[in-house]
Deep mutational scan, measured.
Amino acid sequence: MSIQHFRVALIPFFAAFCLPVFAHPETLVKVKDAEDQLGARVGYIELDLNSGKILESFRPEERFPMMSTFKVLLCGAVLSRVDAGQEQLGRRIHYSQNDLVEYSPVTEKHLTDGMTVRELCSAAITMSDNTAANLLLTTIGGPKELTAFLHNMGDHVTRLDRWEPELNEAIPNDERDTTMPAAMATTLRKLLTGELLTLASRQQLIDWMEADKVAGPLLRSALPAGWFIADKSGAGERGSRGIIAALGPDGKPSRIVVIYTTGSQATMDERNRQIAEIGASLIKHW
Rank of each mutant, 00 (worst) to 15 (best):
A245F: 10
L197E: 09
V157M: 10
G226Q: 13
L146F: 00
Q265D: 10
K71H: 07
A133E: 02
K109H: 01
K71G: 03
S104V: 07
A230Q: 03
G239Q: 03
L223H: 10
A182S: 04
G85S: 03
V214H: 03
E175T: 00
M268D: 12
N272P: 11
N152K: 11
N152A: 07
I171M: 02
A185P: 04
G194E: 10
A245Y: 12
A185V: 01
S240Y: 14
G154E: 07
R189S: 11
G239T: 09
D212G: 13
P165H: 05
D250Q: 02
V72C: 04
L282D: 15
V101S: 06
S68A: 07
S51T: 06
S233H: 13
I93Q: 12
E145R: 08
R118H: 14
D174K: 04
H285K: 05
M184C: 07
R189K: 04
P165K: 01
E62R: 13
W286Y: 06
I259M: 14
D129E: 14
E102F: 10
E61I: 14
S254F: 02
K32V: 06
R241P: 12
R241Y: 11
Q88H: 07
M127E: 01
S254G: 07
S281E: 06
L89A: 03
G141N: 03
I275H: 11
M184D: 08
D48R: 00
H110Y: 14
N134S: 06
T107M: 03
S104Y: 04
M180T: 00
E56K: 11
T147N: 05
G39C: 00
T147G: 13
N173Q: 03
K284Q: 04
L160F: 13
K32R: 03
G239C: 02
L120F: 01
P143G: 10
R91W: 06
R238L: 13
L188T: 13
A200C: 02
V31A: 01
R271P: 07
K232I: 15
Q37F: 06
R189G: 11
I140D: 14
T193M: 01
T126P: 04
N98L: 05
I45L: 11
F64Q: 08
L135F: 10
C75Q: 08
A222R: 15
P143L: 04
Q203D: 15
R59M: 02
R59F: 15
V257W: 08
H110T: 15
S104T: 02
M66A: 10
R81D: 07
I140K: 06
R273L: 13
A123F: 00
D269N: 08
A133T: 01
L199E: 08
R241E: 11
V72W: 09
S57I: 12
D207R: 04
M184Y: 03
L196M: 05
V29L: 09
G142M: 09
A170Y: 00
L223S: 04
L146S: 02
S122F: 02
D231L: 08
R159A: 04
P217F: 01
L49Q: 01
E56C: 00
A183P: 10
Q37S: 11
E119Q: 14
A77D: 11
I54P: 04
R238C: 06
H151E: 05
H151Y: 05
L47M: 04
L218T: 04
D155C: 10
K284H: 02
P253F: 15
M67H: 10
G154W: 05
A276R: 04
S254L: 01
Q204T: 09
Y44G: 12
Y103E: 01
S104A: 12
P105F: 09
R63V: 12
A123I: 00
G263S: 06
D177F: 05
V42W: 00
M184A: 09
S221A: 04
I45R: 03
N98G: 05
M184P: 05
R176H: 02
F58G: 14
S128A: 02
C75V: 10
M268E: 05
Y260I: 04
S80P: 07
C75H: 11
S240L: 08
I275A: 09
R59Q: 04
R41H: 12
G142R: 08
L191I: 14
S96E: 05
P143M: 13
D212L: 13
R255Q: 03
V82C: 06
L218G: 03
N50P: 05
L100K: 11
L137Q: 04
L47A: 01
T261Q: 10
E237Y: 12
R41T: 11
